[in-house]
Computed example of a mutant assay.
Amino acid sequence: MIYRTHAELYDRIYHWKDYEGESRKLRALLTHEGIEEGSAVLEAACGTGLFLEQLQDRYEMSGFDIHEPMLELARRRVPSVPLFAADMRRFALDSPVDALLCLFSSIGYLRSDKELSEAAACFARALRPGGLLVVEPWILREHYEPGRPSMHTYADENLKLCRAVVAEIDGDRAVMEMNWLVAARDQPIRHLAERHEMRFTPIESMLAILEETGFHARFEEEGLMEGRGLYIARRAATRVTP
Rank of each mutant, 00 (worst) to 15 (best):
D87N: 11
P69A: 13
F84N: 05
A40K: 14
A126I: 12
L83E: 01
S95A: 12
T153V: 12
E37M: 07
R128Y: 04
L116R: 03
I169K: 06
M61A: 10
K160Y: 15
E36V: 05
Q56F: 05
I169V: 15
S117Q: 10
K114R: 07
E142H: 14
L127D: 01
A124G: 10
L50T: 11
D170W: 00
A119S: 14
V135L: 14
V81F: 04
I66M: 14
V41A: 10
S80M: 08
E118I: 10
Y109H: 15
S117C: 09
A99W: 04
A86G: 04
L101I: 11
C102S: 06
A45E: 03
L140H: 00
F91S: 01
E60N: 09
D87R: 10
D156N: 13
D156K: 02
L110M: 08
R141L: 00
L52T: 08
V134D: 02
M70Q: 05
S39K: 03
P149S: 05
L132H: 01
E36D: 10
C102H: 03
I139Q: 13
S80Q: 15
A119F: 12
A40L: 11
Q54N: 10
G34K: 05
G49C: 02
V97D: 02
I139L: 15
F104K: 03
E33N: 06
P82C: 07
Q54M: 13
E136T: 04
V175T: 00
L116I: 10
R76E: 14
E33H: 13
L73F: 02
A40W: 09
G34M: 03
R163I: 07
D113Q: 13
F64S: 00
S106A: 15
P137W: 07
A126L: 06
E68W: 07
F51Y: 14
H143W: 08
P82M: 06
M151S: 14
R148H: 12
W138G: 02
V165W: 06
H67S: 15
M61Y: 13
G130Y: 05
I169S: 00
G63D: 04
F64K: 02
D170A: 08
E53H: 14
S117V: 05
A167L: 01
S39Q: 04
I35Q: 01
D172T: 03
A155L: 11
G130L: 09
D156A: 09
E33P: 08
P79A: 01
E33D: 13
R173D: 01
R89W: 08
R163E: 07
E53S: 15
E177P: 00
G108P: 02
L93W: 03
